[in-house]
């Protein structure tokens, strides 16, 4: 599998470290309640198909990258800097 780092370009998967579901960027408000926090911390989908997760470009530029990929075909559909994704979330866009 090859992942396109938004800064470095297409690189071997060995350069990256898997960090988990990209939902980690959508941290709920501290007062959001037990249900929201339980969901955020523990409930994960395990899709056979398109998923979106965080990868850390460990052996490269050290950027955190949101990777949209297909778990069945191993196709990488889209990559984006986590920083940008987070900024969009904060500004209210999707």
């Amino acid at each position: 599998m090859r992942i396109k780092c938004p800064l470095c370009g297409e690189r071997d998967r060995r350069e990256f470290y898997y960090v988990g579901d990209a939902v980690l960027l959508e941290r709920p408000d501290p007062e959001a309640g037990d249900h929201a926090w339980d969901t955020y911390l523990h409930l994960r989908d395990n899709p056979a198909g398109v998923t979106r997760d965080l990868w850390y470009h460990e052996a490269g530029c050290a950027a955190w990258v949101v990777v949209t990929r297909n778990t069945v075909t191993h196709e990488v559909l889209k990559t984006e800097l986590a920083e940008k994704r987070r900024r969009k979330l904060v500004e209210g866009a999707s």
Partner: peptide, 10 residues
């Protein structure tokens, strides 16, 4: 210039 690996080394 690149940041990458040489064998297993950054």
């Amino acid at each position: 210039s690149v940041r990458t690996m040489l064998q297993h080394m950054s």
